[in-house]
C-alpha cells in the first residue's frame, strides 16, 4: 500500500467516523444553543436510538427485508420514537429546572444519562445484541483503496440529514424562531414566540439525529449494547467544542475533523493505535486553551 493509497483510505474512513460524530454533535450543540445545557444524556439517546432501530427493523424486516430500505424505515421509526423520548425527557427533567442554577440542570443531565444507561442494562442483561442485516460486504476497489457501498450510503444519509437540518434552521419559520430563542429567550417570549414549543422541537430534532446515527452504527458495525453511547457521547461533545459549541455548522465541521484526526492519528509514526484517544483529547485541550470558542463559535461572556 503506497502512502497515497493509505492517505485516501484514511480519508474515507475518517469521513465515515466523522459522520457519526457530526450527527451526535449536532444534538449537543443545538440543545446548548437553545437552553445553554450540556446534555450529557445525549450519548445515551444515541444508544437508545440504536435499540429503537433494532426494534424497528425486527418489525418491518418481514415486509421490507433487512436491506437498506428496511433499515431506512427502521431509522425513521427510531428517530420518531427517540425524538419523542427527547421531548419527554426535556419536559420531565429539564423544563422544571430551567430557572435553577446552571449546575443543577447539568447534574440532572448526568442523572438522565445514568437512568437511560441502567434501564438499557437491566433490559438487555448487559449482553451484546447482534444487529442482523442483509447488508453485503461489497464495495468499490480502486487498487488498494477499498470503500464499501455501506460506507457510501452511510455518509450520503448523514449528509442529507445535515443539509435538511441546515435548510430547516435557515429557511423555515420554526428554524428562525429557534435561532431567535438561542439569542434571547425573554425577548422572544415578549414578541409572542412559544419558547417552550421551540425548545421541544429542538430536543425532538437533536434526539432524532442521535437515533439516526445510532441505528446506522448498529447496522454498520453489527452489534449494539447498553454502554455504546458513552465513548461516542464524549467524542461528539469534543467535536461540538472543536467546531464551536452552539454553532450548527461548527458541529458538522468538528465531527468531520475529529473523525479524520482519529483516522490519521493511528498512523503517526512511532505512535501506536493505543495513543489514538490521547491524541483526540489532547486536541480538545489545545482547542480549549487557544480558541475556547471553537472554530466557528462566537465569543460569549458567560460559559459553563
Amino acid at each position: 500500500m503506497t502512502w497515497y493509497d493509505s492517505l485516501l483510505q484514511q480519508l474515507a474512513d475518517g469521513l465515515v467516523l466523522g459522520s457519526f460524530y457530526a450527527l451526535v454533535a449536532l444534538g449537543y450543540t443545538m440543545v446548548f444553543g437553545v437552553i445553554k445545557l450540556l446534555n450529557f444524556a445525549h450519548g445515551d439517546l444515541y444508544m437508545t436510538g440504536a435499540f429503537a432501530g433494532f426494534g424497528g427493523l425486527s418489525l418491518v424486516s418481514g415486509v421490507l427485508g433487512a436491506g437498506w430500505l428496511g433499515i431506512f424505515v427502521a431509522m425513521l421509526l427510531a428517530m420518531l420514537a427517540v425524538g419523542c423520548l427527547g421531548v419527554v425527557i426535556e419536559r420531565i427533567a429539564y423544563h422544571p429546572m430551567l430557572a435553577a442554577p446552571r449546575l443543577s440542570i447539568l447534574i440532572t443531565a448526568l442523572a438522565v444519562s445514568l437512568v437511560l444507561q441502567n434501564a438499557a442494562l437491566s433490559l438487555t442483561g448487559g449482553q451484546y445484541t447482534a444487529f442482523r442485516t442483509d447488508l453485503g460486504f461489497g464495495g468499490l476497489s480502486l487498487g488498494n483503496l477499498f470503500i464499501s457501498y455501506n460506507q457510501i450510503v452511510l455518509v450520503a444519509t448523514a449528509a442529507v440529514l445535515m443539509i435538511a437540518l441546515e435548510l430547516f434552521v435557515s429557511k423555515t419559520l420554526y428554524g428562525r424562531a429557534m435561532r431567535a430563542v438561542a439569542i434571547d429567550k425573554d425577548m422572544c417570549r415578549m414578541l409572542g414566540i412559544n419558547v417552550s414549543a421551540v425548545i421541544a422541537i429542538t430536543f425532538f430534532i437533536g434526539s432524532g439525529l442521535a437515533a439516526a446515527a445510532g441505528t446506522m452504527a448498529g447496522a454498520y458495525y453489527g452489534s449494539i449494547w447498553y454502554f455504546m453511547g458513552f465513548l461516542i457521547g464524549l467524542k461528539a461533545f469534543t467535536a461540538a467544542v472543536i467546531g464551536g459549541i452552539g454553532s450548527i455548522t461548527g458541529a458538522m465541521l468538528g465531527g468531520l475533523i475529529l473523525g479524520l484526526l482519529e483516522s490519521f492519528g493511528t498512523h503517526i509514526p512511532f505512535i501506536g493505535s493505543e495513543w489514538k484517544d490521547v491524541f483526540t483529547f489532547a486536541i480538545l485541550i489545545l482547542v480549549l486553551v487557544f480558541k475556547p470558542t471553537g472554530l466557528l463559535g462566537k465569543s460569549e461572556v458567560e460559559r459553563m
Partner: peptide
C-alpha cells in the same frame, strides 16, 4: 466500534 484505522494498519 470502529476499527477501520487499525485494519488499514
Amino acid at each position: 466500534q470502529d476499527f477501520s484505522a487499525l485494519v488499514n494498519k
